[in-house]
Simulated assay, not measured.
Amino acid sequence: MTATAPITQDVLTLPRKLPEGGKVNIVGLTRDQLRAALIEKGTPEKQAKMRLGQVWQWVYHWGLRDFAGMTNLAKDYRAFLDEHFTIELPEVVTRQISADGTRKYLVRIAGGHEVETVYIPEKDRGTLCISSQVGCTLTCSFCHTGTQKLVRNLTAGEIVGQVMLARDDLGEWPVPGAPKDETRLVSNVVLMGMGEPLYNFENVRDAMQVVMDNEGLTLSRRRITLSTSGVVPEIARAAEEIGCLLAVSFHATTDEVRDKLVPINKRWNIETLLNELREYPRLSNSERITFEYVMLKGVNDSDADARRLVKLISGIPAKINLIPFNEWPGAPYERSDWERIEAFADIVYKAGYASPIRTPRGEDIMAACGQLKSATERARKSSREIAAEAGL
């Protein structure tokens, strides 16, 4: 198996403590980290476990943002919490709602940077697509997000905060005293937004520990999918330390084509990636791996590609998500014809693999897969260019 030494990048990650006046933001701290912070600020060690459980429930089960409302805590302890801690989420700058009900949030984080989060409602579930980095380092040629330069990693709090702000917008927090409602509007989380999650491993891991905790947001690991372009040395680590479902941005059946579509393939090619993926279901106790395959006209959509694909993944418990290319202004590719996509899917299905064709969602608000790129950032860039040209 490939060694799992951490991947390092020269990427800024702001510290967990970004509060005014030295206050510690609770959002994104794991249980162990929050307990340690409570003790550090003066909570007696013998009380720390109980206080941790109380604060945790108020923040992550009830969605409370004000320590004064934590009514099962003594007033002096509430004042202590307010003195040393804060409960802060990223700021929602804009919210767009598609004709199909998809919601896209432009979210401002510390430093004034912006990322995008997308909520996709379906008949039997609601999927939240969250970002893990500002911009992206991978420059996949079919992906609009990849045209943005990587600025920095998101903190665990900024990742968890995306889940919480979506629940805010959807009105999903339970109401004390109201009848219990098991309906989950945010029932699934996918790390498929801006950035490569495995290049921000520690923050993603800690955030998912918070999201999966069964006394708070309570999303099971089987309701969380981490999508990677193929950061091979971190895949086994993700299985062992996160254990969620895994999706791989595959998109090609030869190294020649994948080198162009997913440049990380030049570092870890198809054979190396697949060798590592064969171990993931066993290490993570996951049922299967999802292979994401964007359908690009005349590039990767032939019958020969379909046959190569099923041969390559032979022996890996898997399903193939076929994604009609979501075109964006200036894109260098076109979407495969529908008949071609269906023919490709049929070959994969007859080989024994589920091959659903993903219905494009949120295209009218640029929220579809591969389209996440802030319109405000594009506008600002245009303004700077105009000013430069004018000599301002």
Score class of each variant (00 low, 15 high):
Phe67Ala: 09
Thr147Cys: 03
Ile130Met: 06
Gly370Tyr: 01
Cys129Leu: 02
Val310Lys: 02
Arg35Ile: 08
Glu385Gln: 15
Thr225Gly: 05
Gly315Met: 05
Val27Leu: 04
Pro317Val: 06
Glu182His: 14
Arg335Ile: 12
Leu283Cys: 11
Asp66Pro: 06
Pro6Thr: 07
Val163Arg: 02
Asn285Tyr: 15
Thr376Val: 09
Ser284Leu: 05
Glu287Thr: 11
Ala5His: 10
Glu20Asn: 04
Leu128Asp: 02
Pro44Arg: 07
Thr228His: 08
Leu219Trp: 03
Gly101Phe: 15
Pro263Gly: 08
Asn200Val: 10
Ile386Ala: 15
Arg103Ala: 10
Glu158Gly: 00
Ala367Ile: 05
Val107His: 00
Leu12Phe: 14
Ile224Gln: 08
Glu339Pro: 05
Leu309Ile: 00
Tyr280Gln: 03
Ala351Gln: 02
Arg35Trp: 09
Glu342Val: 11
Leu138His: 08
Pro263Thr: 07
Thr228Asp: 06
Asp76Pro: 05
His61Cys: 06
Ala68Arg: 12
Ser229Arg: 01
Ala236Thr: 15
Gly177Cys: 13
Met1Ser: 13
Gln57Ile: 07
Glu116Asn: 08
Ala247Val: 06
Leu14Asn: 03
Gln148Glu: 13
Ala368Ile: 02
Thr272Ser: 10
Arg267Asn: 07
Gly157Glu: 06
Pro281Glu: 11
Asp259Gln: 03
Glu241Thr: 08
Gly171Ile: 00
Thr183Ala: 15
Cys369Glu: 03
Trp62Ile: 11
Arg35Gln: 13
Tyr353Ile: 06
Thr137Gly: 10
Ala99Thr: 14
Arg35His: 10
Phe344His: 00
Phe80Thr: 01
Asp337Cys: 09
Phe142Glu: 00
Pro6Ile: 12
Gly298Val: 02
Cys136His: 04
Lys149Asp: 12
Val190Ile: 15
Leu392Asn: 03
Ala37Tyr: 10
His251Glu: 00
Glu327Lys: 12
Glu158Ser: 04
Gly69Tyr: 06
Ala239Lys: 04
Val160Asp: 02
Leu261Pro: 01
Asn188Met: 07
Met1His: 13
Val115Phe: 14
Asp168Tyr: 05
Leu89His: 02
Arg358Asn: 05
Glu276Trp: 07
Asn326Met: 09
Asn203Thr: 14
Arg237Ser: 13
Ala304Pro: 09
Val211Gly: 02
Asp206Asn: 14
Gln162Asn: 08
Ser383Lys: 15
Ile120Met: 09
Ala68Leu: 12
Glu377Pro: 01
Gly22Ser: 04
Val204Phe: 11
Ala252Met: 03
Arg361Asn: 00
Leu226Phe: 15
Asn326Gly: 06
Pro263Ile: 09
Met208Pro: 03
Arg358Ala: 03
Met50Gly: 09
Pro6Glu: 04
Gly362Thr: 02
Asp82Val: 11
His144Leu: 10
Gly370Ala: 04
Lys49Tyr: 07
Arg167Gln: 10
Arg288Cys: 10
Pro174Asp: 07
Glu40Met: 08
Asp303Glu: 14
Glu172Ala: 13
Ala236Lys: 15
Arg308Ser: 10
Ala379Gln: 13
Ala236Phe: 12
Thr102Ile: 05
Met1Cys: 10
Arg288Trp: 13
Tyr280Leu: 00
Leu170Asp: 03
Ala351Leu: 11
Gly146Trp: 08
Thr254Ser: 13
Ala36Asp: 14
Gln47Ala: 06
Pro233Trp: 02
His84Pro: 07
Pro324Lys: 01
Arg108Lys: 15
Gly193Ser: 11
